[in-house]
């Protein structure tokens, strides 16, 4: 029974991952990614890690997929149908297959034969997280804060070379010397060609 469930989840995850890296439609790729992440959550349940399965569904399925879909929506271009693989994609395929052969050889050669699972209850995880891993936990919260601020700063319109710059210029301050007027690019306006007098057409 467990093996059937494992093969179901593993096959769905694997096929969805193949769909992510091969489909030509980028929205389908995002939906395949959701399928792959859900399959991984099912595998977490099979590994008796229910808390991580929930976290996986909430954060990946609920947050990351939504953010990726927003990103797709805001960077809509017509080139998605044309932009797919490099011309050199066989090299990428060869590299990944070679890496898989290497990893599979190492895994099979070093097989421990372990087949007994054991769960870790949530109390143990919480105790571990807040006692032994308390400092990394706080640093992770700092990383999230910095990422939030950084994403806003990077993503907002502005900057000298931004064609979509819609932020109004800062109001002048009294305690600073008046800045040089910013050189604006004016369209090269040529004086109208003077017509010789009397030449009428």
């Amino acid at each position: 029974m467990g093996l059937i469930l494992f093969y179901t989840f593993a096959l769905s995850t694997f096929l969805a991952a193949i769909g992510v890296v091969t489909t030509r439609n980028i929205v389908y790729a995002a939906l395949f990614l959701l399928g792959a992440l859900t399959g991984v959550a099912g595998l977490f349940v099979l590994l008796l890690a229910e808390f991580l399965a929930l976290v996986q569904l909430l954060i990946y399925g609920g947050a990351i997929i939504i953010v990726i879909l927003f990103g797709l929506m805001l960077t809509r271009t017509g080139e998605y149908e044309a932009v797919n693989e490099h011309k050199r994609w066989p090299f990428a395929a060869i590299a990944s297959i070679a890496l898989f052969a290497l990893l599979a050889t190492a895994i099979v050669a070093d097989d421990t034969g372990a087949d007994q699972r054991r769960g870790v209850d949530l109390t143990t995880i919480g105790t571990e997280l807040f006692e032994q891993w308390a400092v990394p936990f706080e640093i992770a919260s700092l990383v999230l804060l910095v990422a939030l601020v950084g994403a806003i700063v990077i993503g907002k319109a502005g900057g000298p070379d931004d064609p979509a710059d819609t932020t109004p210029p800062a109001p002048p301050r009294d305690d600073l010397p008046a800045p040089e007027p910013r050189a604006r690019r004016v369209p090269n306006r040529r004086p109208p060609a003077r017509r010789p007098r009397g030449a009428r057409s």
Binding site: A17, V20, V21, E85, A92, A93, I97
Partner: peptide, 10 residues
Amino acid sequence: CLGLYGVLAR
């Protein structure tokens, strides 16, 4: 390895 292929080829 599938992810690696995607990173390299997309």
